[in-house]
């Protein structure tokens, strides 16, 4: 009959074939995993050492002199203080998360549970808006905000981010609400609750995981956004952190010391959000991309 193989520790049988193939597959998978994070390790290694030590590669570890100088330089940069940018990013991202999630939750519930004329048209419109490029809206927005005296203000950028977030959050929460058991709402209706009461007293509390997912992802995306900020904010004191980064590059010679610490600072917040809220983040991410 068949060839006898050596059994390996941890092997469970399955798709990858014999124990040896399985072992090779494990090695390949982990090698890929490590290769994938190398740039992250590189930028971090560069950020915590004097630039002179890494000029011929961040992987050379002797000498290795850990220092926070790059971070201090970036945070208190005289032109573009990343500390300022860090705070501005928070000032923009927090309301730009709360406002659209609140508004979109209402709209999503209407799409999930109500029947009304032109519902399908409105929903398809939302889907199309989800896919629209930011470039398609920015010129009129620029001049509108200018007319409204909201150009170069936090409020202007918050309004744009909020509006831009509504379509995808509506889509995501509509799917989420549709999958809730209807019985709870039906009982509440039998008990005489109005639509509004049902939404706020029943639906919203049991949808907390979905709301958190949407909020986490919206927050990360607003934090990560570059284009809207680039177009709508010019005052260095109001710039968000992603917007400051390219400006730290320098004219002729790239200062990787400064840029590496800046990069770490800019990505640390979404990374922390991703790690802490992993379940919600991934739930939101899959819900954004897929129907179910």
């Amino acid at each position: 009959m068949g060839a006898k193989r050596k059994l390996l520790k941890g092997y469970r049988g399955g798709l990858l074939g014999s124990p040896l193939k399985w072992l090779i597959a494990n090695i390949v998978a982990w090698t890929i995993g490590v290769l994938w994070v190398l740039p992250f390790i590189g930028i971090f290694m560069t950020s915590i050492r004097p630039f002179s030590e890494v000029v011929s590669g961040w992987w050379s570890v002797s000498p290795f002199t850990p220092t926070l100088k790059n971070y201090v330089d970036a945070l208190f940069n005289p032109m573009f203080s990343l500390l300022r940018g860090f705070m501005n990013s928070f000032i923009i991202a927090v309301p730009s998360t709360i406002i659209p999630v609140m508004l979109a939750a209402l709209a999503a519930y209407a799409f999930a549970r109500f029947s009304f004329p032109i519902k399908n048209y409105l929903f398809v419109t939302m889907l199309f808006l989800m896919a629209a490029p930011q470039q398609m809206t920015i010129i009129p927005i620029f001049f509108m905000l200018n007319n409204m005296r909201l150009l170069n203000t936090y409020l202007g950028l918050i309004l744009i981010h909020s509006s831009w977030g509504i379509p995808w959050i509506t889509f995501f929460l509509r799917n989420y609400f549709s999958m809730l058991p209807k019985e709870l709402e039906e009982i509440a209706r039998v008990d005489g609750a109005t639509n509004r009461q049902i939404f706020f007293k029943i639906v919203l509390p049991i949808s907390l995981p979905g709301i958190i997912s949407a909020s986490v992802l919206q927050f990360a995306w607003v934090w990560n956004d570059f284009f809207f900020a680039l177009m709508l904010i010019f005052d260095p004191n109001k710039m968000v952190i992603t917007q400051m980064l390219p400006r730290l590059k320098g004219q002729y010679q790239i200062d990787w010391g400064l840029l590496s610490s800046g990069s770490v600072l800019a990505m640390i917040v979404p990374l922390i959000v991703y790690i802490i809220f992993n379940k919600y983040y991934m739930g939101g991410f899959r819900g954004w991309a897929m129907k179910k």
Binding site: W36, F226, T242, L259, M267
Partner: peptide
């Protein structure tokens, strides 16, 4: 490993661009 690979989706794309140039 999957969460390692996903890191590229988590960070700001502007940092992604810098990391590409860096690498």
């Amino acid at each position: 490993i999957r969460s390692f690979i996903f890191l590229g989706m988590v960070i700001p794309m502007i940092v992604g661009g810098l990391l590409i140039q860096f690498s």
